[in-house]
């Protein structure tokens, strides 16, 4: 389809969004990302039955934690799309990028000590 989506979106592959733990999300923010979104299968079409529904609940909980922390829950979202919806994937990537750009950079960027950078070096 040769679809374009913003280059700032980095993909972390997991077998199912049900694998995404709250700690994974928080660690991503510790490492300085400006936003996180989960792209799960359509509701009712999870290969593992309820993985995407579990992820949805975890995202809701993690949003509350991010609000408490002061980063804002809006930096985290959950989207549902099927693997056949490439168009939707690109659309969501653009939508989320614009939303996060409007929120501005993460206030904790490069400020959390003891976090590994992309080369595995501890800051």
């Amino acid at each position: 389809m040769r679809l374009n989506y913003p280059t700032n979106v980095k993909i972390v592959k997991v077998p199912c969004t049900g694998r995404v733990d709250i700690l994974l999300i928080l660690h991503a923010f510790e490492s300085g990302v400006d936003g996180v979104y989960l792209a799960g299968c359509l509701e009712g079409e999870c290969h593992f039955l309820r993985g995407n529904l579990r992820a949805k609940k975890r995202v809701q909980y993690a949003k509350k934690l991010l609000d408490e922390v002061g980063l804002g829950g809006a930096r985290l979202e959950m989207y549902n799309m099927s693997s056949a919806q490439g168009q939707r994937f690109a659309e969501v990537a653009r939508e989320m990028t614009e939303k996060i750009k409007a929120l501005g950079p993460s206030p904790v960027k490069n400020r959390v000590r003891g976090v590994q950078d992309s080369r595995g070096q501890v800051k």
């Binding site: 700690l23 660690h27 923010f29 510790e30 922390v69």
Partner: peptide, 14 residues
């Protein structure tokens, strides 16, 4: 792990 992460993020923000 979650509490440590919350504390680090919160302090870093300030």
């Amino acid at each position: 792990g979650v509490l440590a992460s919350e504390l680090k993020l919160s302090r870093a923000k300030d």
